[in-house]
């Protein structure tokens, strides 16, 4: 069963946009923004992300408590006036550490996601669209990367480039692009043989244009899903590799390493795992709803 995607009108509209120039495009963005504003989950998500990023950016400076100050005699305490979310195993303020830890986690999560998604989309699009030897080379490269033992990739990176948050972020990004590439390629394989692509080709559109203007929009939903899943993956992986000595070093907190350290206190202070866990969950959910909202807002098929 063949599908007949993309209504002819849409193609005409796209062509019109291309012909008439930037003016209608700006209108499209305005329409998109209006649509986004009418999407409550997306707006809540946006508000949450803005709040978290603001807190991460300026919160640590405003906090009265020092996130590094230890006091063993106050370890593993519950909520109190001085410590609204209690203290960790060495008596540090959990709230202050969560706010400071947001910096690393949000940055690593976002940047590593951008790296892995851009790389994955590029590789997948070229392999899927070009086919032939490009597909063979790129997909076998993807296979090889998927098969490498991640732990040793990290240890080797550590040996060559040294530790540090930048190396960590890049390494996470470079070990997470393969699924994106596979998915994007799968979609490109499918869309490149549809009528509207043939039509575009027939009117003389160049390959690059077909890939970006015609096929890529069809693949955006999958890319958004991959991107949100990769944010979660990156935030959680950061903690796993900081254990190996790569990534951020203690006593600097991240949500990931707070979660990791909470492991042994699951019996005496289960909340230590809950706080960073809930924040990671909310962040990933927010990225997801915002992504969904953006997709809808930019979808030419949906009527206002």
């Amino acid at each position: 069963m063949a599908s007949t995607p993309r209504p002819a009108e849409a193609r005409v509209a796209a062509a019109a946009v291309a012909l008439v120039g930037p003016e209608p495009a700006r209108t499209l963005w305005r329409i998109a923004a209006r649509r986004l504003r009418r999407n409550p989950p997306a707006m809540i998500a946006l508000a949450f992300l803005v709040a978290v990023h603001l807190a991460a950016a300026i919160g640590p400076a405003l906090l009265p408590t020092d996130p590094f100050l230890t006091n063993p005699l106050l370890s593993l305490r519950g909520s109190s006036a001085e410590h609204p979310l209690g203290t960790d195993e060495v008596g540090r303020d959990v709230l202050a550490r969560l706010i400071l830890g947001a910096r690393v986690s949000l940055a690593v999560g976002f940047v590593a996601m951008v790296i892995s998604v851009s790389l994955g989309v590029a590789v997948g699009a070229i392999a899927g669209y070009a086919g032939r030897w490009e597909d063979v080379v790129l997909m076998r490269l993807t296979d090889a990367m998927m098969a490498l033992p991640t732990l040793f990739v990290i240890l080797a990176a550590l040996a060559v480039f040294g530790g540090g948050p930048v190396t960590a972020t890049v390494v996470i990004g470079l070990t997470a692009w393969m699924p994106v590439a596979r998915v994007v390629r799968g979609e490109f394989l499918r869309w490149r043989v549809t009528e509207f692509v043939d039509a575009a080709r027939a009117i003389g559109a160049r390959d690059g244009r077909i890939m970006v203007r015609h096929i890529l929009p069809q693949v955006v939903p999958s890319i958004i899903v991959a991107a949100t899943l990769n944010v979660a993956f990156a935030i959680l992986t950061e903690s796993a590799i900081s254990y190996l000595g790569l990534g951020i070093r203690p006593p600097l907190p991240s949500w990931g390493n707070m979660l990791q350290n909470a492991q042994i206190y699951i019996w005496s202070a289960p909340n230590l795992a809950v706080y960073p866990g809930v924040l990671i969950l909310c962040t990933v959910l927010a990225y997801n709803f915002l992504g969904d909202g953006l997709r809808d807002a930019l979808d030419p098929r949906l009527k206002l």
Partner: peptide, 12 residues
């Protein structure tokens, strides 16, 4: 428990 211990020593 060396990691939290190191954080304690550092602060002292």
């Amino acid at each position: 428990y060396f990691e939290p211990l190191a954080a304690l020593v550092q602060q002292y």
